[in-house]
């Protein structure tokens, strides 16, 4: 590792340590906000690992998340909690692989459309299955507190950052950047484009499912309409794009302000969240293409130019 990489690692560890101290405040509202931020950070960062370089917009987060909660919900009576987390990841990953194999060979529009309906379709399927078997929802009763959930999400975030950093240094990461630039060229230099895209989609699907499983105890009672909320997919997309997908830390920069804004709007104007979502999309396209990361790079570029001229 190079020296500045050690430095980044040092800073990241320090930040993580500070973040881990949050529950010591004992403030329930702060901790619950912390859970939200940690959850969206994991979801948005893993979303960006796939969608950042490939430019495929996935709206499947809610589907994977919901499946994760259901794995926890239906398995908690039978299997220990710690076994269910990897199982959720495995199932999420397998589903992502299937979806990816069917759609990632084709253009981006097909993929968006397919993922758009995936959560709703899974919800219909689960509801139907539950009606057939005659029960409506499931209880997830554990002795996990918000603090435990928060720490687990932080740990998962650290893991996602490490994985993302590793991919960025690997052949796979390099291949994805080439695919994002020009898929035809990628094929002609010998890259298995479909497999590379599916591999990253599997990572983001597995992570979203694990997040769902970790969050499940918070709901206590799980039913299809709470586990599969299509809105979640859109929130994740906006946060990631607002921060910018060009860097690993980009989504985090989008998650924090957007989560705070979302909390504020949904507590004072609960009917206006849809409008907020719409306006955010438009703002990103017209005012902030590339997100905060893009803005930062442009400012840095301008500053560099100015100092070069001086």
């Amino acid at each position: 590792m190079k020296r500045d990489e050690w430095k980044t690692l040092g800073w990241a560890t320090a930040l993580l340590a500070v973040a881990a101290l949050l529950p010591l405040t004992g403030d329930g509202y702060l901790i619950s906000l912390g859970v939200s931020i940690a959850m969206y950070t994991v979801l948005a960062t893993s979303w960006a690992l796939f969608s950042g370089p490939t430019h495929y917009i996935s709206l499947a987060t809610a589907a994977f998340f919901g499946i994760g909660t259901y794995v926890m919900g239906s398995g908690i009576e039978v299997l220990p909690y710690w076994v269910l987390l990897p199982i959720a990841g495995l199932i999420g990953g397998v589903l992502a692989a299937l979806v990816g194999l069917a759609t990632l060979r084709l253009s981006g529009v097909y993929f968006v459309i397919f993922t758009l309906g995936l959560a709703e379709m899974t919800r219909q399927g689960v509801t139907w299955y539950q009606n057939q078997t005659g029960h409506k929802g499931t209880y997830v009763l554990t002795d996990l507190t918000d603090n435990d959930i928060y720490w687990q999400l932080l740990g998962l975030a650290a893991l996602v950052y490490l994985v993302g950093w590793g991919i960025g240094r690997s052949r796979l990461g390099f291949a994805l950047r080439i695919i994002g630039d020009d898929e035809d060229v990628a094929r002609h230099v010998g890259i298995n484009t479909a497999l590379s895209k599916v591999a990253l989609f599997v990572v983001s699907g597995a992570v979203a499912a694990i997040v769902g499983a970790i969050i499940a105890p918070r709901y206590v009672y799980i039913e299809p309409s709470t586990a599969f909320t299509p809105m979640l997919s859109f929130q994740v997309v906006i946060m990631a794009l607002l921060g910018g997908t060009g860097r690993l830390w980009g989504p985090l920069v989008g998650v924090i302000p957007f989560t705070l804004l979302w909390e504020a709007i949904s507590s004072s104007f609960p009917n206006q969240t849809t409008l907020l979502l719409g306006l955010s999309f438009l703002a990103i396209v017209y005012l902030l293409p590339g997100g905060f990361v893009g803005l930062y790079d442009r400012l840095k570029g301008r500053a560099a130019k100015r100092s070069a001229m001086a």
Binding site: T274, L275, G278, S280
Partner: peptide
């Protein structure tokens, strides 16, 4: 590809704005 991504985001945005206005 760039147009595709921009168009998807914009029309999604529009869709949410229209729903938001109608609810409002």
């Amino acid at each position: 590809g760039m147009l595709e991504v921009d168009a998807i985001l914009t029309t999604f945005g529009l869709s949410f704005v229209m729903v938001g206005i109608m609810i409002w």
